[in-house]
Design a protein around this nucleic acid. Structure first.
Lengths: 333, 333
DNA sequence: AAGTAATTTGAAAGCATATTCAAACTTTAA
DNA sequence: TTAAAGTTTGAATATGCTTTCAAATTACTT
């Protein structure tokens, strides 16, 4: 492998000059041409390890997901990876499997590998190692959930208004008994989505505590909750489930009860992935702008890496939008 | 940050001794104790950038997936990441979005970042940069599909026998008209799965060219193919779809035609993810041992990194297994 | 054309580690 | 007890790059 030194010799300039060239300094035109030619001739490539040793930057960003098989995380990481690679950053992935103990371990690992930044998916609570990142001024971006006990840039869905919109849409087409399969109060995402639902239902004067079920944000809990709700309450005309996996569980339960969508019950799901269009009828859902979110995370983290003195932590909200398909009936007709 | 030099001073030995300690050489017990104490006291952590510069190893493995949102890739990467992290390797992810041009670019990127190994998902054709990896003796492991034009270690599903088993199971419970939604001949996975189906159907003397439809391995093609097949052929008693996304498309089509599973038609899908249990009735599927596959990839790549002189490329096959649920009817009763 | 200011350059030092080599120290055996 | 063999050690060198600093070159004024 050719080094900067070989390039210098070939071009007939000093090694410092080549380094400056490589780092975008402007120098005498003749020298620039000579260096460019030498680089091409030798097939020279910068050694990122050596560069990193000097600059204390690895050009790697650690991405810590709750689960790589979580389609939400995967689809955001997809666009994030693209953005970062274009900016010459590599993306080191770690999966903490929704286990906070493991989270700290994975972060320690990334810390020891000199990542220049960290993207944290769906973390509710600060873990000890985060302080070390802060000490070293390594930027952290929280995604999907603000981290309690640690101030940092945060990228969120406007969950509250997503629910408000869902309820509003249903209300406007005549629904009054609108049930929610909620992730419960313990998690940020779940409680925000519930909060929006409650506010909207109250605003329209159709709030009823009995319409709220659920407790955790996984498929099985949603299945049980939906079964319970629909067995005991035959007035409900519409159901709103509040994430992808809960949508899956709810649909299973509805199938189990042999209820027809939307004849017996209208349904509005959350997140727009495969399920939405496999099910018959195809599902109306609240969709998140995942590609945009991924790009925004990339922008923020690069901005903060470039400018580590900027201690101004921002929270950026994204708006969900409803994708209309066939699972909701208009009761006004 | 404490360096090896600080540790040496603290322990009262030379820096070379500390380095040897760190790299697992055995030395005088008293010195080992002194060094261990110094490391603990100073909170010393090795600098992987400097280490990499010296050893020309980054302890990073590039993982190149066709799509991160492909649940098959994601679930394998999940177990791979776990395995590699435990062995102190980081995993750099790249997504080539099923685009062979992009694939070469992403590989170039990983090449320039000094990865110690490459894992390639679902690549049919060699790309130029692979030769460079070979020159530098950087091991490559192909997953899911052998790379034509490039010899390397390969981890595959035994697709042929997966199909044979599926057909056999259906045959044994009385099905004779068994349709296949196939990915077609152009891709390795699709043609292997088709080949197994054809062989088994012929073996039982129930082969009929009309029962084969499909052409590409995506949802929409599968939807169209299924619609076509079932509209024109009312004898079919069972349908076999040959990957996750084709299963989704096929189910959509069956729903569209208002056919009931399994009363009107039995169905056996491929890959065991969310869809299998959302649909009513729950799906019988051919499932791949993804966790095992991920671990095996990790083992192979580390073995080859540790032993780069080993030019003996192996192909490892994994067996699929059928997960029985409610979408297949026993016609013998 | 000469003096000053501005820019560009090369040499050298440094980043944190691994490894070679010769010297120092242990152990073993006679 | 001592010589030979074996082991452990420290100093020095190397990895490929960035950056500082002073010297050299170029550009600008008058």
């Amino acid at each position: 492998m050719a080094t900067i030194r070989d390039v210098a010799k070939e071009a007939g300039v000093s090694l410092g000059t080549v380094s400056r060239y490589l780092n975008g300094y402007t120098l005498k035109k003749t020298n620039m041409d000579k260096i460019a030619a030498a680089i091409k001739k030798l097939g020279f490539k910068q050694n990122y390890l050596a560069k990193g040793l000097k600059t204390k930057k690895s050009h790697a960003i650690g991405v810590v997901v709750n689960a790589l098989t979580d389609i939400f995380a995967a689809s955001i990481v997809t666009s994030l990876e693209d953005f970062l690679e274009k900016n010459n950053y590599e993306l080191i992935i770690a999966d903490y499997k929704n286990n906070i103990k493991l989270l700290n371990e994975k972060l320690k690992f990334l810390y020891s590998r000199n990542v220049d930044g960290i993207v944290l998916f769906h973390v509710e609570q600060a873990v000890p190692i985060l302080k070390e990142f802060r000490k070293k001024k390594i930027p952290v971006v929280a995604v999907d959930t603000p981290i309690s006990g640690f101030e940092c840039d945060t990228v969120l869905l406007d969950n509250y208004h997503a629910s408000v919109e869902a309820v509003k849409s249903l209300y406007e087409i005549g629904h009054r008994q609108i049930g929610i399969i909620s992730g419960g109060q313990q998690g940020y995402v779940g409680s925000e989505r519930l909060r929006g639902y409650v506010a909207a239902m109250k605003k329209y004067g159709i709030f009823d505590r009995e319409l709220i079920v659920g407790g955790s944000s996984f498929k099985d809990s949603s299945y049980d909750a939906t079964l319970d709700l629909l067995k005991n309450n035959h007035q409900i005309t519409a159901l709103y489930s509040t994430n992808y996996y809960m949508t899956i569980g709810a649909i299973q339960a509805i199938n189990e009860l042999n209820l027809r969508i939307p004849a017996d019950i209208s349904f509005i799901g959350f997140d727009d992935y495969d399920i939405s269009t496999v099910i018959k009828p195809q599902l109306t859902v609240v969709a998140q702008p995942v590609a945009k979110i991924g790009r925004e995370i990339g922008k923020i983290i690069i901005q903060k890496i470039t400018n580590p003195a900027d201690l101004n932590y921002q929270t950026k909200f994204f708006k969900a939008k409803i994708v209309w398909r066939d699972s909701v009936i208009n009761k006004n007709f």
